[in-house]
């Protein structure tokens, strides 16, 4: 878009949690705004990021680096984070904090990425593995495999695994 001989970026997105949904869409949309040609290859749990109905969650379980509000980490050490309902509560708190701080939602970043012509590729093998249907995923997604990704990635300036 920006004229110039455009740079290229390839990303492999493998995680399906709310926190890990941000890096591929933030970098993808921003790179596109800078004039990069961008392709994101979604595989394994990363496929969740392409679902029409996003229901991404964040879990404090097994994540000692996650800052807990109100000193909750003192009250809920390790095993406490496995209490039923904890995941839903942390997800709700994180989402409201993001909104308060003016952080975009994943839905918004994803549609901005698509609008900016970021190409999204779903790994056909994992789509089959998880019995996903193409109708579960948003429109405009391409379905392909490792060779297709490598064909593009071999030519890129930036290539990231997330």
């Amino acid at each position: 878009m920006a004229g110039k001989s455009s740079k290229k970026m390839a990303i492999i997105a493998t995680k399906g949690t709310l926190d890990w949904a941000y890096p591929p869409f933030i970098l993808g949309s921003t790179a596109a705004a800078l004039g990069f040609e961008v392709k994101i290859f979604f595989t394994f749990y990363g496929l969740q990021l392409l679902k029409k109905d996003l229901n991404l969650k964040i879990s404090p379980l097994g994540n000692p680096g996650m800052p807990m509000p109100m000193g909750m980490d003192k009250w809920f050490p390790v095993l406490g984070t496995a209490i039923p309902g904890m995941e839903a509560m942390m997800t709700m708190m994180m989402k409201s904090k993001m909104k308060a701080k003016g952080v975009a939602s994943i839905e918004e970043l994803r549609s901005l990425s698509l609008e900016a012509d970021v190409k999204m590729i779903a790994c056909q093998m994992t789509v089959d593995l998880f019995d996903f249907k193409q109708s579960d995923l948003i429109d405009g997604v391409e379905y392909a495999g490792a060779s297709m990704f490598l064909g593009f990635a071999g030519d890129t300036d930036i290539c990231l695994f997330m």
Binding site: I26, S29, T30, A33, K101, G102, V103, L109, A116
Partner: peptide
């Protein structure tokens, strides 16, 4: 105003 990274850049673009 009030928007966080990367929204100001994306909106500007």
């Amino acid at each position: 105003r009030g928007l966080n990274c990367p929204l100001p850049i994306l909106r500007a673009k």
